[in-house]
Design a protein around this nucleic acid. Structure first.
Length: 493
RNA sequence: CGGGGUGUAGCGCAGUUGGUAGCGUUCCUGGUUUGGGACCAGGCGGUCGCCCGUUCGAGUCGGGUCGCCCCGACCA
């Protein structure tokens, strides 16, 4: 292994450090000089853009439209929903002034005390308040409903400790906010969007997720129900990858969003909100990567195929160039993104390692040997297997290979996850085993006390009450009280 | 904000009892190379985090201060 990558700690040694270095070395992102913030580099952003595009189409297919609401929220808005402000107050950035002036020595600027805002503005930590303040003007009749808006934006939460993609003070996300005439319709929408997220995670990111509903203590501030998708990282920790909230009439009441129903009676609107963030990038990286670097699912790879020529003499290179041109053309015709890297300032070995680090799903290599034999070397990133194929029909072969890689990394992730989900009924055993990571399905008496004790003893939390798990009554492993269901417990990011 | 570390070249680090600022790598130039991160030669790059003190003299000793990292509390 090359010197540059000696720093890339093996996954098994220190997963956190490995993750961080991978993000930087693969050119995805880096820490900004600005406290807690992240610079997403072009390669990382290209992946995020691809995710955005697909998600956006999926939202629109359910009738959602994009809109945009202000970054700054008047402080008073946040105090209108008691639980909501309780949840976010501690991590809000506040704008207090609107002007700077040069200082007395004229070598810098200071905040102009004369420019103090009468009412402070909060940089949005999430937009429920400003959006529902707006919906008040939009919604008067049942005929105005539903309102189905989504916005792609940044939000800011003043986090104590940050980690690239997983938790940064500022992050990019989408937040959907819907208003409905009935409780049933809103609940159905919240669940529908969770399903969209789960589909996206599984089919595009190749990340299997557990869908479920959050316990009361883990619920979004101001929600009646929070639905979640939980993914398992390679160190066995859970990553909450997307949430969808049924907000009841809390925001309708807080912002006085009333409409007249068919019976001409006033009613408060029912709300949902749902979001996924650049944290999905973290999920993508931590689910598939190996010691050679990133592994990207073909569906999200900005570059799906790279072609690398071998040759030294200009005449030889020209011959390879000529042989590659039609391959590139055919691949592009099949809708595959491909790059022919015949730059002569890097040696082939360097390119191999570099494109592996960046997770390019398929690599083709062509040299004098292949020109003679009419062959090409094909390497798939997920297994690192190489094979020599005839040039004839190579584009079609690559297309099916890409599908197979997508399928294979998903299967691998599912297998890994399933091997690390355990049913557990004994608390002592649980405390010991949870240290090693994994998801635990345990009976829970439904009390916050039990939940708090588990967290205190083990740092693990109830991730959700999972859907699709056959629920049998039992006994809470902590309190010994009767329990109606098994919940998913894990340590998490 | 509590506990523990750490600040010296872009990155990773060394620097002995206080005495001219070092190593590896990156980067640049030239040449030879090119089927798994090339080699040789030359070169650029630092007010040692900041302030004050002790001293003829401080990267090194003392006091303060700031930043960053790890572990907690908080969290998509």
């Amino acid at each position: 292994m090359a010197k540059e990558l000696d720093f890339l700690t093996k996954r098994s040694v220190d997963y956190s450090k490995w993750y961080n270095e991978l993000v930087v070395k693969a050119d995805l992102a880096e820490q900004s000089d600005v406290r807690g913030c992240m610079v997403i580099k072009p390669y990382g952003y290209a992946i995020w853009e691809k995710m955005q595009r697909i998600l956006d189409d999926m939202f629109k297919a359910t009738g959602v439209q994009n809109a945009y609401f202000p970054l700054l929220i008047p402080k008073s808005f946040l105090s209108k929903e008691a639980e909501h402000v309780e949840g976010f107050a501690k991590e809000c950035a506040v704008v207090t002034h609107y002007r700077l002036k040069t200082n007395e020595t004229h070598d810098g600027v200071v905040v102009d005390p004369a420019a103090k805002l009468e009412e402070e503005l909060i940089i949005r930590p999430t937009s429920e308040t400003i959006i529902w303040n707006t919906y008040k003007n939009w919604i008067h009749s049942y005929r105005d409903l539903p309102v189905l808006c989504n916005q792609w934006c940044n939000v800011m939460r003043w986090e104590m400790r940050t980690r690239l993609f997983l938790r940064t003070s500022e992050f990019l996300w989408q937040e959907g906010h819907t208003a409905h005439a009935t409780r049933e319709e809103a609940e159905a929408r919240a669940q529908q969007m969770l399903k969209v997220y789960a589909d996206f995670a599984e089919h595009y990111m190749a990340v299997p997720v557990v869908q479920g509903v959050k316990s009361e203590t883990e619920r979004f501030a101001g929600a009646l129900d929070t639905y979640t998708i939980e993914a398992m990282m390679q160190d066995g920790k859970a990553l909450q990858s997307g949430t969808s909230h049924f907000l009841g009439q809390n925001f309708g009441k807080a912002f006085d969003v009333q409409f007249l129903n068919k019976e001409n009676k006033p009613e408060y609107a029912w709300a949902t909100s749902w979001g996924v963030s650049t944290r999905l990038m973290g999920a993508l990286i931590m689910t598939h990567s190996d010691d050679n670097g990133l592994v990207l699912p073909p569906a999200l790879a900005p570059l799906q195929v790279v072609i690398i020529p071998i040759g030294g003499k200009p005449a030889q290179m020209a011959a390879v160039d000529a042989a590659v041109a039609p391959i590139v053309e055919k691949l592009q015709a099949l809708g595959i993104t491909v790059k022919y890297d015949n730059s002569d300032n890097k040696r082939p070995g360097f390119k191999f390692a570099d494109y592996e680090l960046k997770g390019i799903p398929v690599r083709l290599v062509l040299g004098a040997r292949d020109l003679e034999n009419g062959t090409v070397e094909v390497m798939r990133r997920d297994t690192l297997e190489k094979e020599v194929r005839p040039l004839e029909g190579i584009a079609e072969y690559v297309k099916t290979l890409l599908d197979e890689i997508q399928e294979n990394i998903y299967r691998k992730a599912v297998t890994f996850r399933d091997e690390h989900i355990y049913e557990c009924d004994n608390y002592e055993e649980f405390k010991e085993r949870v240290k090693g990571g994994g998801f635990f399905l345990c009976h829970w008496d439904g009390t916050a006390e039990t939940e708090a004790k588990i967290k205190e003893d083990t740092q693990a939390t109830i991730r959700c009450v999972p859907f699709g798990v056959e629920q049998t009554p039992g006994v809470d492993m902590v309190s010994g009280k009767p329990a109606t269901c098994r919940v998913l417990i894990a340590r998490s990011y």
